[in-house]
């Protein structure tokens, strides 16, 4: 069967089945199990209303349980067993093996570098642009253009930036902007930038910063708009200059939004895979955890160490997860 036909079938079936499920289960609930008639009408209606939420929740939570919650525990289990020894429990052996690998430490070190640079740079750039475009007549157009990379895949962005970093042999004309500028201004020979250890990490980070700045900008821009105009006008009347207004009046009022943006980008950074995979594949000391894990799982076929690496990512995400849950619960109250 052709995939397109299959897709149409799946859409129809999926939509049909889920609508059918909700409709039918409600029908049965209201008319067969607890009919709203007779002497027990009131009691039945209350019973039906107690059951109904679970009907509504079941498909989504079953899917999430299977596709997100269960894998966390299964990965934990996989990281503690050895596939080659008939799934024997090996304790922390996989973790120990992973820690003995220099590539792991390189990935961890790079990940921390990413965590340090990308959220900070994106948030600051986003905040800067949001503030600059705030009162601009063509601000919305400017923002749309800077926001645009959000729609571009990490792979597409990698190709775009690979062209920027491209290097041609000395003597021929450079077609990568970076080398063109570099050779023009320094008269050095061109560099193959992506192979220059340590600094190449930053070249990869620029790709993500380029993408995430738009995200930070959109949200911070809305937060700036949300600041009550009166507080700013009051500051103007009090004689505060633009800088003071920004740092003393606006910034404090959007702190919580800045934190949200920062953590959201942090999570994206922890999961970054495509960019490294497409641009260097972890060579030249650019390895990161997600790519290291992918490497272990699908190239070395070592599920134990791969799962251990995945657990390390989970561990890094955990503080943010807990913080999110706590603040969500606080809001519900």
């Amino acid at each position: 069967m052709s995939p397109i036909l299959q897709a149409v079938l799946v859409i129809t079936l999926g939509v049909g089945l889920s609508v059918g499920y909700f409709w039918l289960s409600n029908l049965i609930l209201d008319n067969v199990l607890f009919p709203a008639k007779g002497i027990n009408a009131g009691r039945n209606i209350n019973l039906a209303n107690a059951v109904r939420p679970w009907l509504f929740l079941f498909p989504a939570f079953a899917a999430m349980g299977l596709y997100l919650a269960y894998p966390v525990f299964e990965t934990l289990r996989l990281s503690l067993i050895d596939r080659d020894k008939a799934d024997a429990f090996v304790g922390l052996a996989n973790y120990r093996q992973m820690m003995d690998e220099p590539k792991f430490w390189e990935a961890l070190k790079n990940n921390f570098l990413w965590l340090l640079v990308v959220p900070a740079a994106s948030t600051l750039m986003g905040l800067l642009i949001a503030q600059l475009t705030d009162r601009l007549r063509w601000g919305n157009i400017a923002k749309a253009l800077i926001f645009m990379p959000m729609a571009i895949s990490f792979v597409g962005a990698s190709v775009i930036w690979k062209l920027v970093y491209d290097a041609r042999p000395e003597g021929t004309e450079q077609i990568g902007v970076l080398n063109a500028l570099y050779t023009f201004f320094t008269s050095n020979s061109p560099e193959v930038w992506l192979t220059v250890p340590f600094w190449n990490n930053f070249l990869l980070m620029i790709v993500l910063i380029w993408i995430q700045t738009g995200f930070a900008m959109v949200i911070l821009s809305a937060a700036l708009r949300g600041i009550p105009e009166e507080t700013i006008e009051a500051a103007v009347v009090d004689g505060a200059g633009p800088l003071r207004i920004f740092f003393r009046i606006k910034m404090p009022q959007i702190t919580s939004t800045i934190i949200v943006v920062w953590t959201t980008i942090t999570i994206t950074v922890l999961k970054v895979f495509d960019i490294v995979f497409a641009m260097t594949n972890g060579q030249w000391q650019t390895q990161v955890l997600a790519n290291y894990m992918f490497d272990k799982l699908f190239r070395a076929n070592d599920w134990g160490v791969g799962s251990a690496a995945a657990m390390v990512i989970m561990l890094l995400v955990l503080p943010i997860l807990i913080w999110n849950v706590v603040s969500a619960r606080r809001e519900l109250r």
């Binding site: 709203a36 009408a41 009131g42 009691r43 209606i45 209350n46």
Partner: peptide, 9 residues
């Protein structure tokens, strides 16, 4: 007595 009746009834 309508304590347990839903609004619509």
């Amino acid at each position: 007595r309508v304590n347990d009746m839903p609004p619509s009834q």
